[in-house]
């Protein structure tokens, strides 16, 4: 069981080689700039920029599609709801229902934003080992408590998942079938969940002891591995400029700035 996005984290591409801190700042800026967009005329530029970054990252396209599938279901639900119920300008009439222009365009906006933002997120987290990304966020100021919690949780998710599988197998071997919604089934599943919690709780005491035995809390963390090269900073600046460009374009189109 892998964290899913790590499958292609070891490839080689300019994006993979981009310094993690700069990548974080740059792509985050772009992602939030995209979230700001409400004007449809900006969408083509969004698609182009996203496609370019994705292409440079050399991540496989089928990989991206597989990652978009699950969350895409929810968004596609909107594909039905919005065009049929939102807006007043009717484009096509299908019997009692009507496809409305505003709804259709609203959906288009959501859909493109969704795909672009998710693609950039996958590029951001799929082109470096997850661990390195966490350390980078810590070096950027994330609370050490949160960073430590994240690293420990990440590490032990696999163990708990293993426990779950083993316990489920044991239950099945004793004839348990989770078919009906009844008290016995619920109770067995509650016991299963409860056991996971208790085991993790007990394990955490031993982990804590192991940590303090090796000096937990005494380290002065060095961030040498994140020393930035000129290329890293230039790439980051470039992406931030693009992000700002998008924000300005949106503001201009809204009539907030410019002539």
């Amino acid at each position: 069981m892998d964290i899913g996005l790590e499958t292609y984290a070891k490839l080689d591409s300019p994006v993979h080689r981009w310094g993690v801190r700069q990548k974080l700042i740059g792509l985050a800026a772009l992602i939030f700039a995209f979230a700001f967009i409400q004007d449809l005329r900006v969408l083509p530029a969004m698609i182009v920029v996203t496609a370019i970054i994705f292409a440079i990252s050399r991540l496989p396209f089928p990989f991206l599609v597989s990652r978009l599938r699950y969350p895409g279901i929810f968004v596609l639900a909107l594909a039905v709801v919005l065009p049929l119920f939102s807006g007043t300008t009717i484009l096509v009439s299908l019997g009692p229902l009507a496809v409305r222009q505003e709804g259709l365009l609203a959906f288009l906006l959501i859909f493109v934003k969704f795909v672009c933002i998710l693609t950039l997120s996958i590029v951001l987290f799929g082109t470096a080992p997850f661990l390195k990304t966490i350390k980078a966020t810590r070096s950027l100021g994330l609370s050490p408590i949160l960073a430590d919690m994240m690293l420990l949780s990440y590490r032990y998710i696999y163990e708990v998942a293993n426990d779950l599988t083993k316990m489920q197998t044991a239950m099945r071997l004793r004839g348990f079938r989770a078919h009906g919604f009844n008290k016995r089934t619920l109770n067995s599943l509650a016991t299963l969940a409860g056991s996971l919690l208790v085991r993790s709780y007990e394990r955490s005491e031993r982990v804590y002891q192991a940590m303090i035995l090796r000096g937990y809390g005494r380290a002065k963390i060095s961030y040498e591995e994140f020393k930035a090269g000129t290329a890293d900073i230039m790439a980051m600046t470039g992406v931030i400029v693009v992000a700002v460009g998008f924000v300005l374009a949106e503001l201009f189109l809204r009539g907030v700035i410019g002539g």
Partner: peptide, 26 residues
């Protein structure tokens, strides 16, 4: 060295885990 190594290997990679002690030694 604990009875259950999993309780003791709490870092995401082997390298990180072994480095934990030396880093805390300064």
């Amino acid at each position: 060295v604990f009875q259950n190594s999993t309780d003791q290997l709490f870092s995401p990679t082997v390298w990180d885990d072994v480095a934990f002690g030396p880093q805390n030694l300064g």
